[in-house]
Design a binder for these strands. Structure first.
Lengths: 159, 159
DNA sequence: TGTATATATTTTAAACCTAAACTATTTATA
DNA sequence: TATAAATAGTTTAGGTTTAAAATATATACA
């Protein structure tokens, strides 16, 4: 690998990275907005709730509030509110953990599981349509680039 | 262009696109989170406020509330609140528009302009560091891919 | 002119989100 | 054992966000 990037004739690399970031941000906001709208119209629900369901679906034994907030990369208190509403709607349960009276284990109910599968299938269709212009090859290419980008963010996480 | 994608042996394209979307979302959340933190610590401010300043900086004559919310891709009512606080802090002004008593033009104050330049410079540094693993070439490549992706989102916008 | 429609903005209600403070419990350790 | 520190979770305060309703003004057009 060369130690010195030769880029002085063109735009400085920092500016290119900034342009990239602004585009990435815009794209993900755009897509998020469209998905949010679809979830609202088709399922009367929200993205954060879908995210919770998706996380819990991956962990059939459930997750501690703690683990859930880590999994979703959102704050602890945030999860409390979302899960509150989902418990209310019988999508998840929040049960005491034997042996640790501080902890609560959140789990998808059967209803929640069924609901998730329905929504996840549609979600996949929506994303497929929204990213229709990206070929499978391009997608793989982008995934690799995104992975590269990740390796520099401050908190490495085990996954 | 071939009309039929041959992809049956590997993962279906829809799944690849979904994987891409989840990665993109995660990356932009990661970066947004780190930038938010930096803005909070270094400048005692928030990302949305920076976004407003950036938009207004690009339009020295100011923007209608309307145009600002379109520019930032956030809802109309949202902008009201953010601008309220910024007016309060003398970062922007909100002045009536002669000839249209419904409209209000939002503009950066001199203080706001100075503050923006200071923050923008740091912001560029932060992004440059966060995307350090992406070479100028890779960045250009990604930008092109993101542009491709954009061409399929529902509301084409003039820019 | 009068009325319908469109536009610009704010307000409202509900959810989301963070950081920080707080409560309760558990674990480590002197 | 007693105390300190760590952990799990909720609460609080403040800001962000959306969608929908409301207000005010402007425009189109019969």
């Amino acid at each position: 690998m060369s130690r010195v990037a030769i880029n002085s004739a063109a735009e400085p690399t920092a500016k290119t990275r900034l342009r990239l970031w602004l585009k990435l941000l815009k794209l993900s906001r755009q897509i998020e907005g469209e998905l949010r709208e679809k979830f609202r119209v088709d399922f009367l629900t929200t993205l954060p709730r879908f995210d919770v369901m998706a996380a819990l679906y991956r962990f059939p034994k459930g997750l501690l509030m703690n683990e859930l907030s880590e999994e979703l990369k959102v704050s602890n208190g945030n999860v409390t509110g979302i899960v509150d509403r989902m418990v209310n709607d019988s999508i998840v349960t929040r049960a005491p953990v034997p042996g640790d009276r501080r902890a609560l284990r959140v789990k998808l109910t059967d209803t929640g599981k069924k609901e998730f599968l329905k929504q996840a299938s549609k979600h996949e269709d929506w994303v497929d349509t929204l990213l229709n212009n990206i070929s499978a090859n391009d997608a793989e290419l982008m995934i690799d680039l995104v992975d590269k980008a990740f390796s520099n963010t401050s908190k490495e996480r085990s996954e």
